[in-house]
Design a protein around this nucleic acid. Structure first.
Lengths: 195, 195
DNA sequence: AGGATATGCGGACCGGAGTCCGCTTGTCTA
DNA sequence: TAGACAAGCGGACTCCGGTCCGCATATCCT
């Protein structure tokens, strides 16, 4: 009786399933590095991985899930830095803990760097499924974190959404094609984060 | 010599082309009213209109173009009210002309009403093609207008983009499914427009 | 009116996302 | 170790958006 888990954990992934997940991710990276984001069709990935298409869908739900998985490692780094890294991104300097404003600004910087270096994948993931962005686990995380850092505002959660809306890959892509410099974008978002 | 136009005007649409444009739009409305946004596949619309699929694409470029055309009339109303309607949406009260802040607030109200009553079509249009939103003629218009109304801010154009980002149908849809009331959304966007 | 030409038309065709279902295989229990 | 059964697998299939191209016709000019 004592070994009944109190909450349902998702049952462990079967060995073959785990192996195939890894195969698919490796194959996707190979294709992406060789021929860019265009090459990431589900058929091609499945073939490159030597598995059936159904397997890809079973493991990753849909294309945006697959692409998100590709981004996951990078995003985890950022996430970690945000929870526990050195200030101002992380929470605690031993002598002078950073202000919430400083941490928000630092987040904007770090996230924009992240967007800048993975714009194509981010677009692919957001494009593949409508509202994909909001389903991403990390989106929830960023939102919660920013909400906390906006604790003194009137509707902190809305403020968090505002900043995240400005960090939308589609919007940034548009601004870039309109000729905006990264500096100008950065300045704008930063100001929103600062107030 | 005198009747040479100084600028190239797009040559007038051929009679059969105009007729087909109308047929397609009517067919699309019929399908939409009968079976909702789901029914708006390009094949179905073409068939209902009694034209070939190629014709639909020739007239409307892509699916988001077609859906945008469906929204056009409504949007034109709003656009007109904004340029020349009565204050506070329009520019000039004879006795006390509305402030820029009042006009921005009024715009947010009016646009949110618009989004509220056409959310499904807006989503369809934004979903159909990546970045479709930014290609819409009216997007440009809203942006320019808001930029003007933010004339005193540091980077007025960025402020305009911020407000428009908050009015993105995908974001609003997400907030709605998260249980947000229209009032809360309205209050948030309004505050952004006001500052 | 009649010929020249650009514009438009239809629908076969293509590529890619996502589903379905009969078969296989890992895992757990006895 | 054997049997039961959930979980996973593959790939044919469906659906839809978008393109292509040979044929038709509106418009313009003389």
């Amino acid at each position: 009786m004592e070994d009944l888990p109190l909450v349902d954990q998702p049952p462990r992934e079967r060995a073959d399933a785990a192996r195939n997940r890894a195969l698919v991710l490796q194959a996707a990276w190979r294709l992406y590095n060789a021929r860019g984001v265009e090459a990431l069709t589900t058929d091609a990935v499945a073939q490159e991985a030597g598995v059936g298409k159904g397997t890809v869908y079973r493991r990753f739900r849909d294309k945006s899930g697959l692409v998100s998985a590709l981004l996951d490692d990078k995003e985890k780094e950022l996430q970690l830095a945000m929870i526990s890294g050195p200030p101002p991104l992380g929470p605690d300097g031993p002598h002078d803990p950073p202000t919430a404003v400083a941490r928000r600004t630092a987040f904007v910087h770090a996230y924009l760097d992240y967007v800048q270096s993975h714009l194509d994948l981010l677009l692919a993931s957001e494009t593949a499924a409508p509202g994909a962005r909001y389903r991403l686990g990390v989106y929830q995380f960023w939102k919660t974190h920013l909400t906390m850092l906006f604790g003194d505002a009137y509707d902190p959660e809305f403020r968090a959404y505002t900043v995240l809306a400005l960090l939308d890959a589609g919007l940034i892509q548009h601004l870039r094609t309109e000729g905006w410099s990264w500096e100008r974008i950065r300045a704008g978002v930063e100001q929103e984060a600062r107030r």
